[in-house]
Design a binder for these strands. Structure first.
Lengths: 218, 218
DNA sequence: CCGTTTAAAATCGTATACGATTTGTAAATT
DNA sequence: AATTTACAAATCGTATACGATTTTAAACGG
């Protein structure tokens, strides 16, 4: 595959990096001229990249106002977490794990215990599904997880969140080790649903602050 | 929601319409200048729309060559059909059907029997899942089905295809009628897998003509 | 002081210009 | 006849210009 890449992809990578670092604030309208000055690329490929992120439902385009990072809603959270959970379950169920896969997973699970990090959390989940051969399924997951970042970026320093999110990781790995994939899948799904409950709870506590309960957006 | 729409969306609608009508040929590189003249919109929003279709994996962007309708492959077919089948099953399983829903479905199923039409086929499936409340799931399905159109457009006049694709529609409806959603879901998934087999078969027969078996694209 | 109106500044969305790359064609070579 | 080479034409990707819309700040009136 050619190494040439159009600027649109570079912009997208930049924006995805910002999202990963929690630097793209919820509710923010992306200023095209400012971004153009920051990254030294004209607005044309910037708009193309943002259009793509709109297509991926990561951001919204508001006519004549621009591209905005849409506010969080409980409905969207539920839809996101449920879809991601289901897709991860499907991917896990069609995966085959080799010795070094288990090794990688254990290393990552330990890293997660040692350091609460969203990136490590996402990496753990990526390792769980990476052996699924359905690239469309995996790409769909990746895409959905970008938007999920906005829901979890508020918990980057939240020990309770990571305790909860990590709670069943060992059990998942053990089930996989014992070739009991259905159980692993079940625990995995339960884990996502547990995290969703926590997210919902926190959103209820923050109701009216940075989070809006706008069901009509979804 | 505002009625204003940016030209990007109009271009996308135009292209989606072309895809539905089978007017966008597999392997074709979309000529920006020609499309601009045809629809009377400059290339900027055209590129934005095409970038979105690239993001949705409907087409591919090849640097310095443009946006192309990627060739069909058996691997992609399998990944697409399997993902769509799974997502439809999930959507169906979280659906509640009312009397008028059943009515609509029966009407559509009859239409499908009376007239072999891809649009009617897709509409039937849309009705099957439309009551699922997970909009992200439904939007993901819609998106995947755009690409699926390329696999099925060759069968628009193929009676065998429709006989096969329609074979279990009545059984699905009957199971739903009897509130036996798990059975309906199972039949639905089997139906998609049957269609996938047929598509694979036809691709094997046409090997070397309009279809390329390029696994590395997926 | 607060709400409304007005005007200026900022920004968005689109069209267009233009350099870079690819494609197509004709001529030359084998 | 088939292949290679050279070059013109076509096309792509990006930057920039500009009219339309939104935002912001100042002025005005109650």
């Amino acid at each position: 595959m050619s190494q040439i890449s159009v600027l649109r992809d570079k912009v997208k990578d930049h924006l995805l990096g910002q999202i990963e670092k929690g630097e793209l604030a919820i509710g923010k309208t992306i200023n095209l001229a400012a971004l153009s000055r920051t990254i030294g690329i004209s607005v044309t490929p910037i708009r193309e990249a943002l259009s793509q992120l709109e297509q991926a439902r990561v951001i919204n385009a508001v006519p004549n106002r621009g591209f905005v990072v849409t506010h969080l809603t409980k409905t969207e959270a539920r839809n996101l977490y449920e879809t991601i959970a289901q897709l991860e379950v499907i991917a896990l169920e069609s995966s085959i794990f080799h010795l070094k896969d288990m090794e990688s997973l254990r290393v990552q699970e330990k890293k997660l215990r040692d350091e609460k990090s969203l990136n490590k959390r996402f990496e753990f989940h990526r390792l769980l599904v990476k052996n699924c051969s359905n690239s469309i399924l995996l790409q769909t997951l990746d895409s959905l997880k970008v938007r999920l970042r906005f829901y979890e970026q508020g918990f980057a320093k939240d020990t309770s969140f990571f305790d909860l999110a990590n709670r069943q990781n060992e059990a998942i790995l053990q089930a996989i080790q014992q070739d009991n994939i259905p159980t692993a899948a079940l625990i995995l799904k339960m884990n996502w649903m547990t995290v969703l409950d926590y997210v919902h709870q926190k959103m209820d506590e923050n109701h009216g602050q940075s989070v809006e309960n706008q069901n009509k957006l979804n």
